[in-house]
Design a protein around this nucleic acid. Sequence first.
RNA 1: GGCGGCAUGGCCAAGCGGUAAGGCAGAGGAUUGCAAAUCCUUUAUCCCCAGUUCGAAUCUGGGUGCCGCCUCCA
Length: 499
Amino acid sequence: MSLKLTNSFTKKLETFKSLKPGEVSIYCCGVTVYDLCHLGHARSYIVWDVLRRYLMSQGYQVTFIQNFTDIDDKILAKASKESSTMTQVSEKNIKEFHQDMDTLGILRPSRMPRATRCLDGIREMIQKLEKKGAAYSVEGDVYFSVMRYSEYGKLSGRDLSEQQLNADGRIDKEEGARKQHPFDFALWKTAKDGEPSFSSPWGQGRPGWHIECSAMVLQELGETIDIHLGGSDLIFPHHENEIAQSEVANDKKLATYWLHNGMVNVGGQKMSKSLGNFTTIRALLKEGVSPMTLRLFILQAHYRKPLDFTRESIEAASIGWQRLNSALCLGLISHHRLKWPKNVSHEKTISDLNARVIPETLSKSRQQFTDALEDDLNTSIAISILFDLGRPLRSLANQIERDISDLGEEEKNKELHLRWMLLVSLANILGLQPELPQVGESDQGQKYNEYEIIKAIKERKAAKLSRNFTKADKIRKELKDKGIELIDKKDGVTDWIRK
RNA sequence: GGCGGCAUGGCCAAGCGGUAAGGCAGAGGAUUGCAAAUCCUUUAUCCCCAGUUCGAAUCUGGGUGCCGCCUCCA
């Protein structure tokens, strides 16, 4: 295989080669746990989930570390607002985070370190930096001295001498006075009255934001890792500072590849908490947008480009997903009818497929799919191949629906089965899992119960038989108004589905 | 002011020098009492100008517009 990735460090498309054969170490910047995640977070973690799934599909042993920043001004602010504690706020939001990510089908990281649990490593690294003369303390604060690191700015392409003129009044004056250089950043902050704090050689305080990632990478993965991930908004200063800290402390390159995802935009502007233009994952799911719709929406764009969020584009993704999903569900719903082996599990389907010889047309699709992902994760192309693969399957699903008995020759049926297995297998690399339709199943706490629906369907059938279509349509309409859609099948049976 | 990115049909979005993927929407047709679903067919010369080239959406130069980062941020 030859996976090519755009390395933000070199700004070039590079062929991926791991440090250790067959193993990949990945660190991904996680969230500050002070609130629910929004669509922007979803994009980041969905995209990196695909990278991980792809590497796994190629047989790599992937160690994926993602942190939780569980100490921060915003968490403290939230705690004070809710009259709770920092720990309560972060614990709650960690739980919420897991719930959202699990729903979106994002694989759990191998380990998820938290800032408050890595204090030893953090303190050690700061001390190391002090010893090397790259850090200095002022009244209980400790700062990293950017002038002591000649390569500072190499990730973001910033030149210290040109930048310092343009602080533009954005730097806190008090802090600015303590710093030797405007770009120096806090490694350790002295505690303010009443704030949670931790002991250190510099007094009670807490770590600066950037240092936790450096300490965690070292602790969890070592001095140099294969891939470092994050949103493009983290390039400066966060990742720049991480590089400075780690590389000065360890005298080793921090990461071979740096990958950054583009932002989710709203009306051309970045979705963010501070602008207030965000939509949480939770809110979208609550509205009935399916998790896989969100995945499809996000993966239809290239991960490095900005992606505009609109109701229309979510709606388009939703309909697209329904169609793709009907192909994905075919073997789960109709295996009996098609005389296909019963699907035991996704894993089984995928391993079964790998053991088979597949026809040339299908292996070509598989190759195109892989080529697309290897070309800097071109999920957009990958998805177009899924749609192509799914087309004949949807057609078949429709034939079954209409009970057209002729299923064609055995050869053809065999090809369709393999096609379906391939579709399931490739979709799985994008994390797109079939969502079985909830036909006829009552959800929790429905206002209109199943008995009434069935009764109405019977009435409508009687009306249809007596050719009283006005009445039949009236019943359809009444049910529709209550969110129940009727689907007439060829054999005279009427299915229903809650919308 | 510095650094970086983007501009493709009604909308979203691929494309990385060889004559415009895919999704949604629209149109026509098949099927259908209606509805839904499905199938087939169909819709662009790529922000502007100049250049390089046999050939450019793709490269170069110059515009115009939009965005990100430089403060917390996926």
